[in-house]
Design a protein around this nucleic acid. Sequence first.
DNA 1: TAAGATTGATAACTCAATCTTA
DNA 2: TAAGATTGAGTTATCAATCTTA
Lengths: 180, 180
Amino acid sequence: MTAEPAVPGLDPHRSPSPGTELDEPALRVWRAFLQASVLLPRRLDEELQAAHGLSLAEYDTLLHIANAPDRRVRMSVLADRVLLSRSGITRLVDRLVANGMVERWACPTDARGAEAVLTGSGLDRLREAAKTHVAGIERHFLAPLDATDREAIEHGLGRVAEALDPCSQAMTAAPSRPAD
Amino acid sequence: MTAEPAVPGLDPHRSPSPGTELDEPALRVWRAFLQASVLLPRRLDEELQAAHGLSLAEYDTLLHIANAPDRRVRMSVLADRVLLSRSGITRLVDRLVANGMVERWACPTDARGAEAVLTGSGLDRLREAAKTHVAGIERHFLAPLDATDREAIEHGLGRVAEALDPCSQAMTAAPSRPAD
DNA sequence: TAAGATTGATAACTCAATCTTA
DNA sequence: TAAGATTGAGTTATCAATCTTA
């Protein structure tokens, strides 16, 4: 008991080597973000899985294909959007193909390329799953946030994400409009 | 081109079955959060790995042990803190033990239990890694956020996380004080 | 009988190497 | 020679089953 003063250089209450640690408020923001960033996707994944047998990544992939012109996307574009590696998206699409939600087509303009194309069944699955998923986002993410929180999170985390990967921002900023 | 109007029921511009989709602002907050929640931990993990051969989860585990009284923690407590399953923490601690950063001791008060104990070498590794990690958090997470953003993120995402897992909040709210 | 921790089997990702076409 | 996509090997997580002690 009376807890050892904790590790110098790590515990916010002591400051042995300045610059090596976060002050208390900074630590609290960081931990709040870290916790939410683990717990929230995990919960949404569980709900999606339980209700529709889809993982969050699979859902997200279907959604990106569905929102693309003609409901077809190049594999590499898809990988960028879903924040997965090339091989990762190959395997994920393999699963969707095996379950009849997606078909793989050769790219007409570049014979090296492949396109993932949503099937009717895939669209149906997606539409069903969307109800669950949207409800989950509203309940677990949006509900606890007031207008100020939402504004700040969009702004702040938007900048954070943009700095980490400038490419992936097209989608976030201007959803499904060709030019903006 | 001129992008098909996208999938009904999924695209914010059309509203075929109300309640099935998020409005545009909500969608933007959500996507900002989702992107940051993938990209930021990934980047911090890469930096830690490159500079010190530690994953983010390993770092976090070492930190929790280090900040515990006596630098020792029960495995199950550790699992809760690091948001890992029981078997997950067993395997992670296995790696830390194999690398000499942690030792496994029998729990004195409950012979079923085990405690993870930080070694001197583990503490050294942690201290070194902390420099990199704190710098990364400041640079990639805190720097793009102004005071308002931080406040909102701490409050808002704090509530989000708390609703998803009431237990895991003890740490976030009151770091390393026995009673609060 | 239940709780703490570990082990076996499995899933989903990564990197590096490969194959095909530009 | 390089770019798009896939395959092979390895890593790290999970769940379910097991072992030990309360």
